[in-house]
Amino acid sequence: MTILGRLDRWKTAGAITELQYNTIAPLVRKDRFSVFIELNALLYLGVLSFVGGLAWVAQSYFATLGDAVILSALTLVLGVSFYYCFSKAPPYSSGEVESPNLAFDYVLYLGCLVFGIELGYLETRFHLLEDYWDFYLLFSSVLFFVLAYRFDNRFVLSLGLSSLAGWFGLRISRIGFIYGDSLRPYAIAYGFLVAGAGAWFHTRSIKRHFTETYFHLAASVLFISLVSGVIDGRRTELYLLGLLGLAAVSIIEGVRFRRFAFVVYGTIYSYIGISAEVLNDLRELTPVVMYFVISGSLVVLAMVLLARRFGREE
């Protein structure tokens, strides 16, 4: 039976109202078709491309155009963006706030990215902070957090989180086990700070829809740091203990709040960590593959039980 046939049957049986039928059936028939996602994608790509171009022009033509022209142009874009956002924004609310229009979020994002370029340009050309230039990142991240909360903008929140990571010396855009011994404590501190901030805002009911962004980022950074510590760190046992503890928390809380992505984090990262530790002393191929057969089977068994008990719903 087709879904339209089912809707008809449900309407006749009184399971749905006439009004509900008249709202849903056009969606199924595609009499109403939303291009919301496509328009957002165009705006997002447009902003990224525009900002990338601005940076490229500034980089290529600062000698020809002069600092004044470049800074004026960047300041103009920045000023117009922020003026637009402050003049059009609805009042602050700690709950989720609908954007006044489709472009609003992207104008703010554009302004923030241009702000970053302008700071980078100022420091590169005039060396205002010199050795302390990374405080620009801290300052930027604070500003981005304030703007993200004021205007309820997840793009700017992500920008703030990645700028803060930059201040800690981390590079979020790189995937892999990148944190060396010297950087690892900073990565762990960053992870706990982000998780703590997310939890703090959540408990105070401030922009609760941001919470998952904090936790996903914190979990990724913490797990990667701890696994890299297990693989090549000096205090392997300590990192392994931390990894197992974090994995346990991630799996338990993931199941409790039905956020199964955290169950995946906990399972995969702890498996990598344990495997690295176990396989470290094995030199022959046979026990290595035997380890994978046995350990893999145990994980599958555990996951099947978990799926049957908690993860049935699609």
Binding site: V51, G52, A55, C112, V114, G120, L159, S163, A165
Partner: peptide, 30 residues
């Protein structure tokens, strides 16, 4: 989008390009 921030292309024709000691993430290219 935290991992897809727009980067700045490599220097092409900047003879007096000063060094910032490598970029870090975020800051919109700052």
């Amino acid at each position: 989008s935290a991992i897809v921030q727009p980067g700045i292309p490599a220097a092409s024709s900047a003879p007096t390009k000063p060094e910032l000691g490598g970029g870090r993430s975020g800051g919109g290219g700052a």
